[in-house]
């Protein structure tokens, strides 16, 4: 792999250079909340942060997105698809868990019935990863085979070091973006490459939380019915925050603005909401918390792997941090492994 190094100071210069040709999206403070937002200058890019409150998925699968505009008049109907991105983008500072989650979303939006809007954004975005130096207590990416210090899903991967960063160039698309400010980068010496790989190894060792998801899908195949679901679901408030902040949750709703001219848009939806499955006639196949809590965990740990051969959790820990009643997916996984569903069923 090709490596480069860049100083902290030059990083800002490179990012500023980039904005001439790319839209730059990076972690920034928005009302004291760390979020991925478009920034016009490198000065607004936050470099020391644990992770963003919302994952990067918003920039491929936006919270609300116009699908097309329409105009209807007597005997006429015009449909105008939403145009593609005006400029390519650089998405800077994505953590390895969130990088992995984008490849999981690819399974859904690529493949059968390819989603043009998602794929356009994906194809025209340079993904710049940033390794974690000090994982948070809620991070368990390692449990899903994700390394906090590297990621194959990025076009460029940055590892922080003394005074600057080591950069792994992982795709042509990434290299092209680097070349916009080639002079800001230098060739690393062997010591720097070694320092970066040590940092990555230390980050991995620093992960405190871990579970072993191996065999969880197969176990859950047998326990759609288990009193366990009755036991864990009552405390859930069905607020939906767990799905809102989850980098792998991809469920959406589609709606129209009313009137003769307007737009059809899609927006994030949540399996935790009653209306999610309620039909026009009133029948609801998932009427209570029990069915909805079960759906959320089974979607991530059984249905998604059944379809796409991978678990739909990357161990980012956001749901652990934000759930007001401490519903904990690592606990669920341990319970499944510990035979709790089986015992509950007896």
């Amino acid at each position: 792999m090709e490596h480069k190094v860049i100083s902290r100071e030059n990083l800002g210069k490179w990012l500023d250079t980039i904005t001439r040709e790319y839209d730059l999206i990076a972690p920034t403070l928005d009302d004291d909340v760390v979020l991925f937002k478009e920034v016009k200058s490198a000065a607004r890019v936050l470099l020391d942060y644990n992770n963003t409150v919302l994952p990067a998925k918003d920039h491929f699968f936006p919270q609300t997105e116009t699908v097309f505009r329409f105009k209807a008049s007597a005997g006429q109907l015009a449909i105008e698809p939403e145009p593609p991105l005006a400029r390519p983008r650089v998405l800077f500072g994505v953590r390895p868990c969130d990088l992995k989650s984008i490849t999981l979303l690819d399974h859904v939006f690529d493949g059968d019935f390819q989603d043009g809007q998602y794929l356009d954004k994906r194809a025209r975005t340079v993904l710049v990863g940033l390794g974690c130096n000090s994982p948070q207590p809620t991070c368990f990416c390692g449990s899903f085979g994700i390394e906090p210090g590297s990621s194959p899903a990025a076009d460029l991967f940055f590892t922080e070091m003394e005074g600057g960063y080591l950069v792994n160039i992982q795709s042509e698309k990434g290299k092209e973006a680097l070349q916009k400010g080639w002079s800001f980068f230098a060739d690393p010496d062997a010591g720097q490459v070694k320092e970066a790989s040590e940092r990555a190894a230390n980050a991995k060792k620093a992960l405190k939380l871990s579970v072993d998801p191996k065999g969880v899908k197969e176990e859950l195949d047998h326990f759609f019915e288990s009193p366990y679901w009755d036991e864990i679901s009552p405390k859930c408030l069905t607020c939906g925050i767990c799905t809102y902040i989850c980098p792998t949750c991809h469920c959406f709703d589609i709606n129209d603005t009313s009137g003769q001219a307007g737009e059809r848009f899609r927006c994030w939806d949540s399996c935790m909401f009653t209306d999610f499955t309620r039909m026009a006639g009133g029948h609801n196949p998932r009427p209570t918390k029990k069915e909805r809590v079960r759906q959320r965990f089974l979607h991530k740990l059984r249905y998604f792997p059944d379809r796409y051969k991978e678990y739909a959790c990357v161990g980012c820990g956001r749901c652990l941090q934000k759930c007001p009643v401490h519903m904990d997916i690592t606990q669920i996984i341990s319970d499944v492994k510990g035979g709790k569903l089986q015992n509950a069923a007896k």
Partner: peptide
């Protein structure tokens, strides 16, 4: 209805 050739149509757009 101008579309860049790079953009695959959204499967959510009706005819």
């Amino acid at each position: 209805m101008q579309q860049s050739s790079a953009l695959k149509k959204s499967p959510l757009i009706p005819e």
